[in-house]
């Protein structure tokens, strides 16, 4: 039991989130205030959850990818593709909404599989392999929408991004359901263990008979699926597909969320809950900065500093230096 508590790195991100929320509560009057209007909750906290939803979805897939020792830079571009495809299918061509959703998501899985193939079968570094789709993907999305913001309205589709369920934004439900699905998929099967094993020691995993390439293929495909869902969520929230801006820099937020959540960039042990907390921390930062009447852009600087702090804490060299100094005194 001790080992479990000790090894659980969740405590730090959780603590950070709580401190952040507390600070907000202190500086922003009514931060924790929640109103109920026509059976729906409103308030800062609700906003944070709603706005964090796309990054939370992305970070679920990203967690698995990073845990294998890889990274997926293409998720932002895949989000743009996903929104564009949905706008074309359901918005423009009037395809039955669930069928449109399904087709869009299948396409995103294919996009992810493409990344996975490059990484596994062709053994190309993940950063490089996913860079290709990152660059070309946004172009493809722009091609699909002819560079314009495609607005479309389908009330059942709009519900995903702006509807509410149990008083909360429906996006929260989407995230919770998908978190549960990911957790079951990774922990109730052996995939989670294979992923951690590969990230920890690829060679030993191969010698133990784990099919390393298949697992890698799967995580990138899954990341593509998560990106597709995030793209749909964003498109549905604004009833439009904006190929130029949808998902821009989201890959970075997702990576940050995963790392802040306690999964090491070098791979190995991962925590889905941690990544969820990470995504919330990032969103809370952004929201709280906005509430302080400071330019929103200040959030970027703060993000950079938070990211650096976390990266340094994870860095062996930094810890050694710090430990050495402590021992020396």
């Amino acid at each position: 039991m001790m080992a479990r508590i000790k090894s659980s790195k969740l405590i730090w991100p959780l603590l950070a989130l709580i401190v952040l929320l507390a600070l907000n509560g202190f500086f922003t009057p009514g931060f924790f205030h929640i109103e109920i209007k026509s059976g729906r909750f409103y308030g800062h906290i609700i906003d944070i959850m709603n706005q964090a939803a796309p990054v939370m979805l992305l970070s679920l897939g990203m967690t698995l990818v990073i845990a294998t020792g890889g990274v997926d830079l293409s998720v932002g571009a895949v989000m743009a593709i996903s929104g564009a495809v949905m706008a074309l299918l359901t918005g423009k061509s009037g395809v039955f909404m669930p069928a449109g959703l399904l087709l869009t998501l299948i396409l995103c899985v294919i996009a992810g599989t493409w990344n996975g193939l490059l990484v596994s079968a062709f053994d190309i570094q993940p950063i490089v392999a996913t860079l290709i789709l990152m660059v070309a993907g946004r172009g493809i999305a722009q091609l699909l929408t002819q560079g314009q913001i495609l607005t479309f309205h389908d009330s059942s589709f709009a519900f995903i991004g702006s509807g509410s369920f149990a008083g909360l934004p429906f996006s929260v439900t989407v995230v919770l359901v998908w978190l549960a699905v990911t957790a079951v998929l990774s922990r109730a099967t052996a995939i989670g263990m294979f992923v951690e094993s590969i990230g920890d020691n690829t060679k030993a995993s191969r010698y133990a008979g784990i099919s390393v390439n298949t697992v890698k293929l799967f995580v990138y495909a899954f990341s593509g699926l998560c990106a597709g869902m995030a793209g749909l969520l964003v498109a549905s929230g604004v009833n439009a597909a904006d190929s130029n801006n949808a998902g821009l820099y989201y890959e970075l937020d997702a990576i940050l969320a995963v790392i802040v959540g306690g999964t090491a960039m070098s791979g190995g042990r991962f925590s889905l809950i941690g990544s969820m907390i990470g995504a919330l921390i990032i969103q809370t930062l952004t929201t709280s900065i906005r509430a302080q009447n400071v330019p929103v852009e200040f959030a970027l600087v703060v993000k950079a500093i938070v990211a650096l702090a976390v990266f340094l804490l994870q860095s062996d060299a930094f810890n050694k230096m710090f430990a050495g100094r402590k021992a020396g005194v």
């Binding site: 109730a188 099967t189 052996a190 995939i191 263990m193 294979f194 951690e196 094993s197 920890d200 020691n201 060679k203 030993a204 995993s205 010698y207 133990a208 008979g209 784990i210 099919s211 697992v215 190995g268 042990r269």
Partner: peptide, 27 residues
């Protein structure tokens, strides 16, 4: 470098090959 999976538990290291042979579904 080729044997242990260092940060995984003793339990996971022991069952790794057995689980790999069973496949991902039959956990």
């Amino acid at each position: 470098n080729a044997g242990i999976i260092p940060n995984l538990s003793v339990r996971e290291n022991i069952v790794a090959a057995l689980q790999a042979r069973r496949g991902w579904l039959r956990r």
